[in-house]
């Protein structure tokens, strides 16, 4: 996207061992992200987006396993770090706002201590007074009162917990924040406010952000670029305005036409069919059984992800032909 990307993921594959088979949850995924940029990743449940989020911090647990690829963040190859270096890297370089922030906080430890232990783990020389000052400042920055520090997680509302998680994410001013469905457990009003807070603090510290979710409306307000995952593969990537104005991949087109619109009255349209099982992917393009534009070649050859316009990449035979990018 820009000259020296902050993050570049090259041909990353992550799979889950199921019996003797391996389900590729992330399959040969490559993307780059510039400093301060916001990238949204959308996809159906099981499309591999959360697996990708965890793999970026190497937080995936067996049976998940990174098969191949490279993750470079600011020049550091994350997959080659040893345990000690990995521990230092986590949170100081990449922070996570986990899916279901409801259970993301330790129920028996006060908020202050859960933030303080993170600082202490990375900044050995910081005094207790400075740590407390920093925590108070962060809580205020995400719109909470400093008294929240003295509370236990169960004493907070869902929105407050999510704000604590945001404050926690920026405690070490990381270069990248990964937000895995940061608002999925919140009601619509609180969602908006929390997303605004998240965008504000992200912009203040100048971190890049990867936001994972399936709420297209939320994405439209929150990110600069959008990437679509289907059955473990990146199938479409575009600047957010372009994506909504003129979606290219048939799956993206269907996603957008399935959004309810306040202007026109029409029955809600879904996408017929189901996402295929990762253990039993159809030959060729994984989307072809559901695709309205399906061609014979789609049933046989997997379409590669190709740059069709500046900043736009699509994995689709039909689109590639229309743009005539293929010989």
């Amino acid at each position: 996207m820009i000259d020296a990307p902050l993050l570049s993921i090259n041909d990353l594959s992550v799979s889950y061992a199921i019996g003797n088979e391996r389900a590729r949850a992330v399959d040969g995924l490559s993307l780059t992200l510039g400093a301060g940029q916001r990238l949204g990743i959308v996809g159906e449940s099981g499309s591999g987006k959360s697996t990708l989020a965890l793999a970026l911090m190497r937080l995936h647990k067996p049976p998940a396993m990174i098969d191949s690829g490279q993750i470079l963040l600011g020049g550091t190859d994350i997959l080659r770090l040893d345990q000690g270096a990995l521990r230092k890297f986590r949170w100081s370089e990449v922070a996570l706002i986990p899916q279901g922030a409801m259970n993301a906080l330790n129920p028996v430890i006060k908020v202050r201590e859960q933030m303080a232990d993170t600082i202490r783990a990375h900044r050995r020389d910081m005094s207790a007074r400075d740590i407390n000052k920093r925590i108070d400042e962060l809580l205020v920055r995400v719109g909470l009162s400093t008294s929240v520090a003295g509370l236990y997680p169960h004493e907070l509302s869902g929105g407050m917990k999510q704000r604590v998680c945001i404050a926690l994410a920026i405690v070490l001013e990381p270069k990248l924040i990964i937000a895995d469905e940061p608002t999925s457990a919140l009601d619509v009003v609180v969602q908006r406010v929390v997303i605004e807070t998240l965008k504000d603090v992200q912009a203040q510290i100048g971190a890049a952000m990867i936001m994972i979710g399936h709420d297209m409306g939320l994405m439209a307000q929150s990110v600069d670029h959008l990437a679509v995952m289907y059955a473990g593969r990146l199938v479409d990537q575009a600047p957010i305005r372009e994506f909504f104005r003129r979606p290219l991949h048939p799956y993206s087109q269907l996603l957008i036409s399935s959004l309810p619109s306040p202007d026109e009255t029409r029955p809600l349209a879904g996408i017929p069919g189901m996402q295929p099982s990762l253990l039993d992917l159809p030959a060729g393009c994984a989307f072809h059984p559901r695709c309205p534009l399906v061609q014979p070649i789609c049933r046989e050859v997997m379409p590669p992800l190709e740059t069709v316009e500046p900043h736009r990449r699509v994995a689709c035979h039909v689109v590639a032909e229309a743009y005539n990018v293929r010989a």
């Binding site: 937080l59 996570l96 986990p98 899916q99 409801m102 259970n103 330790n106 993170t118 783990a121």
Partner: peptide, 14 residues
Amino acid sequence: GEDYLTLAEGKGLS
């Protein structure tokens, strides 16, 4: 299996 354990690991705690 709880989320707060994943997060604890993500925080880079010992």
